[in-house]
Design a protein around this nucleic acid. Structure first.
Lengths: 270, 270
DNA sequence: CGAGGAATTGAGTAGGTTCAAGGCCGGTGG
DNA sequence: CCACCGGCCTTGAACCTACTCAATTCCTCG
């Protein structure tokens, strides 16, 4: 199962803690956001292109993707949503969904009512800042995806995707070594990377022959990360997982003061 | 000249006004953000990959791009920055730039100090919401770029790019008809679309032969928008330019109340 | 044990690249 | 004012990566 947990037990907390070390109270707030979980099977449409925008979600287990379905039936997967990812907390600012969200494996989600998001961001500015950080990080991944599709060949694309998925899962404490559960079909991979399933297959054959990976029974293992990174032409920390820059320390300090003030006025909200 | 203005005279105001109708005071705040402009020639590196992140900017005239330079000298242009676009207002939350920003034409920028951004967002929540809206819109454009590179052929890519550039410039009041100044070389276009300059050339020749566009002297004119949209396989309003959904009205109302309260406490800041 | 989706393999094809050469145009300096 | 220069555009021909179509095998699950 892809779902699961790291030390904190909560992938949302684990993810955002890469950016700020939260207080016990803040952690409580984030954990409360993940209450009210719902389960979905694989292949379920959580949101459809053209729908009016919905409340936000946090993925707590499983795997889903954002994708765009083309008129001719082809599709393009835009990003994968793994545990700890929340999505569309602010999407209600847009008129409608410009893409669909579909589960790939069995998935658990917590729904987050709109007003709660704005309330929390107002009352716990450090959490609000973490939301911005996460949005910046997601943009960074989208930009990286553009580079992948625009300037990497098929081998580079696959290598890059695998490295990214492994790193992201390590970042939320799901994986320890260089192996992850990968419930993607070769067609899913192809639709992510702008290739065909046939060609993805041939690339995978090549990687196996060269001893770079094994991929059996939905389990992916990277044997030679260094070489894969070279193939992908990877920039080291594009996921910005190293945490907050020293620079933002001052900003967070300021937030802390503001937060303390607002906490006096309001009792705990949950 | 690409720079210039619509009715409001200020492209930032014009852009954000697509989302909220601002009060006179809010407009004043936004216009003040655009004070302190600096001029840059074409081909200047405003920020380099790996730099520590900088303060934010607003483009008021000209054209720049975000791009990624690869190890082998190739590059991938990620997005274009046209007047009204501000960038990296929150990038200081990340450790370092993962891409460069380069001017394509002569460009004017206003620099926005970090603390001003957070101050404004706190004191004028409607402006803060507009920042989020703009971030959502930029993400939408990145996603669209992914679809372009992953699932459109060369003709579709070029057609899509042209439509997008024209629409964006109309949205900030720079262009009225279906013609814009386009200070891009064919190599720039190729680096945006994951193609080679040679092939971009052939596609353009085709479009000209078919009477779809004219492109002379850095001036692009779309003659048959309908056909170009078909070639691009365009979704109608992916830029979300139609404005805020009714849904967010309530949210903005709530903000207004909060804003009024905070305004009492603080005098105008500029 | 059967069925259906997924993976695999082969052969032919096409869209886009690569390499290379020539022409155009705008700017610059004598 | 003209000649030169460099960047950009244009065109041709050969090539290659990845696609398409199609058939076969493998897994998984009921």
């Amino acid at each position: 199962m892809i779902g699961g947990s790291g030390r904190s037990g909560n992938p949302l907390v684990a993810k955002l803690s890469r950016f700020v070390l939260f207080s016990r109270e803040e952690i409580g707030v984030l954990e409360a956001l993940c209450a009210n979980q719902e389960r979905f099977n694989a292949g379920v449409n959580l949101a459809e292109e053209g729908d009016p925008t919905r409340p936000g979600f946090v993925v707590t287990r499983g795997l889903a993707c954002r994708c765009r379905l083309m008129a001719d039936g082809r599709r393009q997967i835009l990003t994968f949503l793994i545990p700890g990812d929340f999505f569309d907390l602010h999407a209600f600012l847009l008129r409608s969904m410009d893409h669909s969200i579909i589960t790939i494996a069995a998935t658990r989600l917590a729904t987050i009512p709109r007003n709660k998001v704005t309330e929390i961001a107002a009352r716990y500015p450090r959490i609000g800042a973490a939301f911005w950080w996460s949005a910046m990080q997601e943009s960074a991944m989208l930009r990286e995806h553009i580079v992948t599709l625009g300037r990497r060949n098929a081998r580079g694309r696959v290598a890059h995707l695998f490295c990214e998925l492994v790193w992201r899962q390590r970042a939320v404490g799901i994986s320890e070594d260089h192996a992850i559960r990968l419930p993607l079909t070769q067609l899913d991979i192809a639709d992510t990377l702008g290739l065909t399933a046939v060609h993805v297959n041939r690339v995978l054959q090549g990687f196996r022959r060269e001893g770079l990976i094994t991929l059996v029974q939905r389990r992916l293992q990277l044997h030679d990360v260094r070489t894969l990174q070279d193939v992908a032409g990877l920039t080291p920390d594009y996921l910005h997982l190293a945490g907050a820059p020293a620079e933002s320390g001052r900003y967070l300090d300021r937030l802390e003061r503001r937060e303390a003030a607002s906490r006096e006025r309001a009792a705990g909200w949950c």
